[in-house]
């Protein structure tokens, strides 16, 4: 089961939780990633690992949240699995309230 990255009580996606989730993904799937806040064309670093060098995958998770991963050497199946975990977690938050990050 995916690590919970949200709190239903707080109803928001905190930096700390995303940092923690990025570490969990790296520990379990060997994918280095960080999350970005999307503002128009701009993707600003929001949370996650700081040691991502090659930003090879850029995936929009919601209209407000994107994910950038150094993942070229990881097989597609694993990447898809991780993306699904993240989307699943984010969608749970959206069920509770609009994500405000």
């Amino acid at each position: 089961m995916a690590k919970e990255i949200y709190s239903y009580n707080n109803k928001e996606l905190s930096k700390e939780k995303l940092d923690s989730f990025a570490k969990w993904i790296f520990h379990n799937h060997c994918i280095k990633l960080y999350f970005c806040e999307i503002k128009g064309s701009r993707w600003s670093f929001y949370a996650g690992l700081h040691n991502v060098i090659a930003s090879q995958k850029r995936i929009m998770i919601t209209k407000k949240i994107g994910m950038v991963a150094e993942a070229d050497s990881v097989d597609k199946k694993t990447i898809d699995k991780v993306i699904n975990i993240i989307k699943d977690e984010v969608s749970k938050i959206k069920e509770v309230s609009d994500v405000q990050i």
Partner: peptide
């Protein structure tokens, strides 16, 4: 950089 999170303190680093 601006479109993949290499902004602010991250790009400075």
């Amino acid at each position: 950089g601006y479109r993949c999170g290499r902004t602010g303190d991250r790009i400075m680093g």
